[in-house]
Amino acid sequence: MEKVKIGKSELEVSRICFGGNVFGWTLDEQQSFKILDAFVAAGFNFIDTADTYAWWVNGTGGQSETIIGKWMKARGNRDKLVIATKVGSETREHPFDISKKHILKSVDESLQRLQTDYIDLYFTHFDDNKTPVEETLSAYNEIVRAGKVRYVAASNVSPERLVESFDVARENGFPEYVALQPHYNLVEREGYETKYAPLVKKYGLGVMPYWSLAAGFLTGKYHSEADLGKSVRGQGVRKYLNEKGLAVVEALEKVAEKYKCQPATIALAWLLTKPFIVAPIVSATRISQLEAMIEAPKIGLDEDDLALLDRVSY
């Protein structure tokens, strides 16, 4: 199984990252263990979660980290995995918060739920846009020096605050972000490619796109509003049921037929051709969905495939 380094870090990961937002939501503990077992059995080692997953179920979250922690303890495989989690998200009980006080409290809670001594990659999940960058990075400096976190990264941070974070880190000797987790896929290109891709190149960031399959739209199971009831996330793809979105799905199905695979596999393979993309983040609730994910790194899209997908997705 091919593995690549995340940005300027020493973390080596597989080319697909499993998104843990489904744990404790659409998958219970037993089902989560089954999916995780299959994922690592296929040679993958990269798992992403957040301290607040799945807050929409209980208002606070913590279920995903708890399930992953129990699974790692049961399997004794912590040293073979790269675990990413996040801090700063909003829940029903607290707003976005990346203050030093919140980070220092949250990291210990995440470590306890994950039943581990360290987190490989710790993300600013959402920027509260009020905490001084220096305060946030000083907290990261403290937990990295304490060995609680190996590397820090950014997700929903504006380009301006991202640049400021690098300036402040270099001025103060604080840890620099090594990765970015943006919203990026075949039907959501402009934001990342115009605002973030230049910064990714400038700072050498490893990129792990979230919503890599556009909330399931790029799996090809949604062709009309009548299909929206096929999933609990169906209403979230209604906005893609337009001329452009349907053209993208049609192109994915055409290329997938050529390679005898699923449209989702092609959507992920397309992402993997882009510079600095380390591993798209994807969730699965069934083994059949997982199989579509893990086939993506094996697909070598040719120039005609890429030209078609680029044309319909711009």
Rank of each mutant, 00 (worst) to 15 (best):
E188S: 11
E193C: 00
G206Q: 04
I143G: 12
L205A: 00
A146C: 03
M208A: 11
N129T: 08
A197G: 03
P209D: 08
K195P: 01
M208T: 11
Q112M: 12
P132W: 09
Y118R: 10
L205C: 04
E135I: 08
Y118E: 14
A139V: 05
G191F: 08
P209Y: 10
T85N: 03
K195C: 07
A139W: 10
S89A: 15
T131L: 10
K105G: 03
A153C: 13
D97A: 05
G88L: 00
L199V: 00
A153F: 08
H183Q: 15
K202T: 13
S89E: 01
K86N: 00
Q112V: 13
V152Q: 12
P198L: 10
G173P: 07
L180N: 06
D108E: 15
V133C: 05
W211R: 06
F174W: 13
F96E: 07
Y122S: 06
Y177F: 15
G216V: 10
E93M: 03
E171M: 12
H125G: 05
L121I: 06
D79M: 02
G147L: 08
E135R: 09
R170G: 14
G216T: 09
S106P: 11
R150G: 13
L137Q: 07
N141C: 04
K201D: 15
R189F: 14
G147V: 13
T124M: 09
L213A: 08
Y140K: 09
Q112R: 15
G204F: 02
E164P: 01
R113L: 10
Y140H: 07
D117N: 11
V157L: 15
I103P: 00
Y210N: 11
F217R: 01
A179G: 14
D120P: 02
L111R: 03
S212T: 05
S212M: 12
Q181L: 06
N185D: 12
